[in-house]
C-alpha cells in the first residue's frame, strides 16, 4: 500500500487537489454534504498546519533550541509571561492574563508611534503641492497647468474627505455639510475603484484554479490542453 502511494504520490496529490477544488466550488450550486466534508477537512488541515508551524517554525527554533542547544537558559524567564496568557481561560485567575496582554498591548502601542511617523509624516509633506503652474527649481520638477489642476483636485479631496470624518463638531453650516457630503461621494468613487481592482484579484485566484484544472490536470489526459 505504502509502496503504491509513494510510487504514485504525484498523481494522488493531483487527484486529491482536483477533488478538493471541485468539492469547495460545489457550494456555488448549493450548500451540500460534499462541500461540508471539504469545509471540515480544510479547517482540520489548517488547524494541523497551525500546530505544526507553532512548533517547527516558532517554538523549536526560537525557544527550545535557544535554551537547550545554545545554552541560553535565561530565555526561560519569558515562559511565565507566556504561560500567564493561558490563564485567560480561568474565570478566577484571568486577571493574571491581563498582565501579559497589557504588556503586549503596551509594546505594540509604543511601536505605533514610530510606525505612525514612518508611514504618514512623509505623506503630510507630499501634500505640499503648488496649485498654480511653476517653473522648475533645484531638484523639483516644473508644475504645468494640468499638474496644478491635479494638485488643486488633490487638495479639495483631502479637505472634503477629512471634513466627513470629523465626529465631534456639530455641523450647522451648509458649506461644511456640503463639503462633508462631497467627501462621502469621493469616498464612494474610490470604493468603486477598489471594487474593480478586487474583481481582478478574485478572478486571478479563480483563473489560477481553472488553470490547474484545465492545463495541469486536463493536460495529463489531453496533451494539447497543456
Amino acid at each position: 500500500m505504502l509502496d503504491f502511494i509513494s510510487a504514485n504520490a504525484g498523481a494522488i496529490q493531483m487527484w486529491v487537489a482536483v477533488a478538493c477544488t471541485l468539492g469547495i466550488y460545489s457550494i456555488l450550486y448549493k450548500e451540500n454534504k460534499i462541500y461540508r466534508f471539504f469545509e471540515h477537512a480544510f479547517i482540520g488541515l489548517a488547524m494541523g498546519w497551525t500546530i505544526r508551524t507553532a512548533w517547527v517554525d516558532v517554538l523549536y527554533p526560537n525557544f527550545y533550541q535557544r535554551i537547550f542547544h545554545e545554552g541560553r537558559w535565561w530565555w526561560i524567564l519569558a515562559l511565565p509571561l507566556g504561560l500567564m496568557l493561558y490563564l485567560i481561560y480561568s474565570r478566577k485567575y484571568n486577571w493574571m492574563a491581563r498582565i501579559s496582554i497589557g504588556f503586549l498591548l503596551g509594546l505594540s502601542a509604543g511601536q505605533t508611534f514610530q510606525s505612525f511617523a514612518g508611514l504618514y509624516y512623509k505623506q503630510i509633506v507630499t501634500t505640499f503641492k503648488p496649485i498654480v503652474p511653476q517653473a522648475a527649481e533645484g531638484s523639483m520638477k516644473a508644475v504645468t497647468l494640468s499638474g496644478a489642476i491635479n494638485n488643486l483636485i488633490f487638495l479639495a479631496i483631502i479637505i472634503c474627505v477629512m471634513t466627513y470624518f470629523f465626529f465631534s463638531f456639530e455641523v450647522k453650516s451648509k458649506v461644511v455639510q456640503k463639503t462633508a457630503n462631497t467627501g462621502r461621494w469621493v469616498l464612494m468613487i474610490a470604493f468603486g475603484a477598489i471594487f474593480g481592482s478586487t474583481i481582478m484579484a478574485r478572478m486571478a485566484l479563480f483563473i489560477s484554479r481553472m488553470d490547474f484544472l484545465i492545463k495541469q490536470f486536463g493536460g495529463t489526459f489531453v496533451p494539447w490542453l497543456k
Binding site: K122, A190, S197, A204
Partner: peptide, 17 residues
C-alpha cells in the same frame, strides 16, 4: 500586492515611499 491591496498603496507611490 494582490490587486485587492493595491489601491491602498497609491499614496505611498505618490510620496516616494
Amino acid at each position: 500586492p494582490t490587486a485587492v491591496m493595491a489601491p491602498e498603496a497609491y499614496q505611498y507611490l505618490d510620496s516616494g515611499q
